[in-house]
Amino acid sequence: MSTQSTLAVDVEKRLGEFNLAVKFESTGNITALFGASGSGKTSIVNMIAGLVTPDRGRIALGDTVLFDNAARVNVPAHKRRIGYVFQEGRLFPHLTVAQNLDYGRWMSGVTADPTERERIVALLNVGHLMTRRPGKLSGGERQRVAFGRALLTKPRLLLLDEPLASLDRARKLEILPYLARLRDEAKVPMIYVSHQAGEIVKLASQVVRIEDGGVLASGGLELLDEERAT
């Protein structure tokens, strides 16, 4: 991976009684944030996306500084060009699938790229859903559209926050191959948040273990050996 898209995070944030202080650098194609629920993983990605402002610290993507409280830099979320796939999809219920997919392009003014759109639509197999509204989609379909919506903004980094957690086992198995294809074909570095060691092993190359709002360890997949044994 080029240094162009290395994500460097070093932030602190107080959330009520909970103190979050993390420092890590993503080096893999897919970097997994691994930890139990409540350990602060979602807060970390929200800070990377610009939805939550850290109290102190610095976040940089390649040589772009996204947040630096010392230099008073805080790029607003809509200018960060970071795609975000949420646990619950968060598709716009009042728009069709096609409109959801194109929303990012309308808003960020990215020029239309029909070939790329077709490729992503085919990759995620959502072509037959275009005229439907999210209320009429299954959980797995919804999540695939959410991947496409985030990818079509041509993000510099893709954040995936437990994208499979709301799905049952069969749906998870349905989505996992798409994620593997995204990793191999979309060429976008990703931060993958999960508490499931099994998912991470299939996708990620680097693991950052989060516990109680801090980084416990950072390294390769061997960090998960203990989890997988139990």
Partner: peptide
């Protein structure tokens, strides 16, 4: 659902 507004801002909407 305010989270939909957050989603819109990550897609580039001011």
């Amino acid at each position: 659902d305010r989270r939909l507004e957050d989603a819109a801002s990550t897609l580039g909407a001011g």
